[in-house]
Design a protein around this nucleic acid. Structure first.
Lengths: 219, 219
DNA sequence: TCTCGTATACTCGAGATCGACTATATGGCT
DNA sequence: AGCCATATAGTCGATCTCGAGTATACGAGA
């Protein structure tokens, strides 16, 4: 039984819901949407059904019964098995205590910002700050609403975490922008800024190329 | 040409390196490892070759020549095309200014912590705090080393960002732990704590009474 | 009455991703 | 001389993931 762990977090959500009450996949999907789970876990029709299939194959869930209403496709109602329950709890605990190695896109992009001239970088950062402010506002509104209908804090704790992290990013972006502005990242070296990370050879290529001779010039 | 954008960040890294000098995939891989790029972008042999293939198909890179050394497999040296250069710069800018919708695992797990009893939760959080402290220390050591060999700050800016965010998470985790300890997350309700969702029955009651209309919160 | 939007419920195939594998060369150690 | 670890260079097939598609029901408005 329970050979290898499926990695898609959607499966964790499925197990959590089935842990509450047996459901068929479509109902799982609908319930998730009601609860706002797609805000933290990518929900996708196709993935949901294959994840359920995988859970079935691993013996973490079993079909209870199949119903049919009118001429709609059959719906199969699943419940967690005992191994499924144990697996769910273990997995959940693991997710909490052990940070996953993930690869968010922004730091990856930061690794190449040598290719972007500082003045433009400042504009881009300002745009990002705007976007992030917007999404913080949205999350906060969500929390306000939840509080309004008397929901306990644990039901929106993910949003609290996300807001905290977005807020932190905001502060970093602002500080970074300042560092670029006041030149602490673009020190002079032989009369040239050493921001542009491309090699001299590459610079030459760039100058020679017909298209790009102006785009990357420095202040 | 340049129909749709490939989404794998590995492709961005490939373009960045080819932008410096034409290389064959294996050299790209080696150079990435030298530069520590696998710390921010998942590098994998198989993926690298298929990403290169995709870039080729999109006309963003072209084979310059193919060499053969001894009886090793042939190696094909690629260079970016003009569209490739433009595409790279546009893509990079986009990554900087527009936050990607991503689904980190921890907040996803937080959405289900109702299933973990508070005392255990505290232990798990402490474990996580330990892990995060460790990875902060490692990143910091990396930055120290870079400074030691006279590298400019822009070459480790991703690490600065990551440390900043990890530090922020650390503070959140600590505060959260305190909130659990002092009971501000486990208020009493009809003589029972509304944290622990052990039995399915309790669970169902909770969901029904409290989570009815959360669906209208966030986009 | 007809049709349009939405809800119900799932299927499918194209493409992405990954880890494991293949095969050769080189240098150091016993 | 023989052997193993490592570097070189890339291939392959099994999953995984996703968006789009299929098919039915149903109520509201033109």
């Amino acid at each position: 039984m329970a050979a290898r762990k499926i990695s898609n977090m959607l499966a964790l959500a499925v197990l959590s819901l089935l842990h509450e009450k047996p459901m068929h996949p479509y109902e799982i999907s609908a319930t998730m949407k009601e609860r706002g789970i797609p805000d933290v876990i990518k929900l996708n029709n196709g993935s949901l059904y294959s994840v359920v299939e995988a859970l079935l194959k691993q013996g973490w869930i079993i079909p209870l019964e199949t119903q049919r209403e009118g001429r709609h496709p059959e719906r199969t109602i699943y419940a967690p098995t005992e191994t499924g329950r144990v697996g769910f709890h273990d997995w959940l605990r693991e997710m909490v205590y052990e940070p996953a190695k993930e690869y968010p896109q922004f730091p990856a992009a930061l690794a190449f910002i040598g290719h972007i001239p500082p003045p433009e970088m400042i504009e881009l950062l300002e745009l990002r700050i705007g976007f992030i402010n917007k999404s913080i506002a949205e999350r906060r509104a969500g929390i306000e609403f939840a509080r309004g209908i008397g929901l306990s804090r644990i039901f929106v704790i993910e949003s609290e975490y996300i807001i905290h992290q977005l807020d932190s990013e905001l502060r970093w972006l602002t500080a970074f922008k300042e560092d670029i502005k006041n030149g602490s990242l673009t020190e002079q070296s032989e009369g040239e800024t050493i921001w542009h990370m491309t090699t001299p050879a590459d610079d030459a290529q760039l100058q020679n190329s017909k298209l790009q001779s102006k785009g990357t010039t420095l202040p």
